[in-house]
Design a protein around this nucleic acid. Structure first.
Lengths: 168, 168
DNA sequence: TTAGGTGCAAATTCTTTGCACCCTG
DNA sequence: CAGGGTGCAAAGAATTTGCACCTAA
């Protein structure tokens, strides 16, 4: 159904092989099939789903290999996670329509408001997918706190490992 | 730090009490403090964090009450979750900048592209929060599949409970 | 009073890890 | 051939559930 074009898949596979070689990690049968599975589907499978699908081709593969591989691919920048990786569910009592600024360093998520963004015009490609109900903008970047921290660190001599700003 | 104004908190508390009464659920000490905690903070705490904070006021409260209450509040529409509720991490091999259409019925997440949205102009309120790196639009709505399913259900007599369309 | 709510502890579910064997480079 | 990678089983973390007591309405 939501399937990626063959040409695009081939392109991704080549990128994958190149990055792996460059990073000096092995191109195992399992890794190849796991990446292929994620690359060729337009849906956004979780680890369990990838496992089930790859198992049809490699019946002996184990779920933990799928987990390890997916995170490895993520670290290599070959795939991304949908939503915040490795995080627990978080709650929000702000019911007004609003948007989020998410710090890529520390995970701090701050609300902001914008009439303009609330009434965002969407392209046909988006409207074609279904009945639109609402629109939400996520801005990724480095929050004030983390920017300041970096400045401090660079100017001072004492730079231990970056302590992330409080996750909230 | 990220703290909501007192007036706004009071407003939310009143809304909360009203909704609870209307829904016929009890206004227990625990529920009140849990809601207050989420309502008065501008951060987006997870269950554990809420638990730790509320415990300062109600030392005997248990973590499972916090979980139950947060989901209850969520079901009542008094709070929302950040990101998809109760879902596992999902992966995506599409590295081009793209946006998502998320079906609120079945969770299907589809990619779409838009130059216009890629280069979205952001309001000052957003830029003020930090160094912007990228912007991502999430469109919520009902996907084609679910719209069709609803039509079918309404026109036909056989309507068992709504089987969600495949989650991918 | 009394049905719904809570705390506790145990159960589930999802994910990660230790270790011995295996296979790519 | 060597060292990273894998499968297995067991551990861990996060979240949910069963049950008896408690409390708001």
């Amino acid at each position: 159904m939501t399937k990626t074009k063959k040409r695009e898949v081939d392109l991704r596979m080549r990128g994958f092989e190149q990055v792996c070689r460059q990073a000096g990690i092995k191109l195992t049968h399992q890794r190849i099939e796991i990446f292929r599975e994620v690359a060729q589907t337009g849906d956004h499978p979780d680890a369990e789903t990838v496992y089930q699908r790859v198992r049809e081709r490699i019946p002996t593969i184990s779920l933990d290999t799928v987990y390890r591989t997916l995170w490895r691919l993520n670290d290599l920048g070959l795939i991304n996670t949908l939503g915040p990786p490795r995080e627990r569910t978080r709650f929000d009592a702000n019911l007004e329509q609003h948007h989020h600024f998410v710090c890529v360093r520390c995970g701090l998520t701050q609300d902001f408001y914008s009439e303009e963004l609330n009434g965002l015009r969407l392209p046909k490609s988006a409207k074609a997918l279904g009945q639109v109900e609402s629109t939400h903008v996520k801005v990724y970047g480095v929050c004030r706190g983390c920017v300041d921290m970096e400045k401090t660190k660079r100017s001072s001599t004492r730079n231990k490992e970056a302590k992330p700003c409080p996750r909230n």
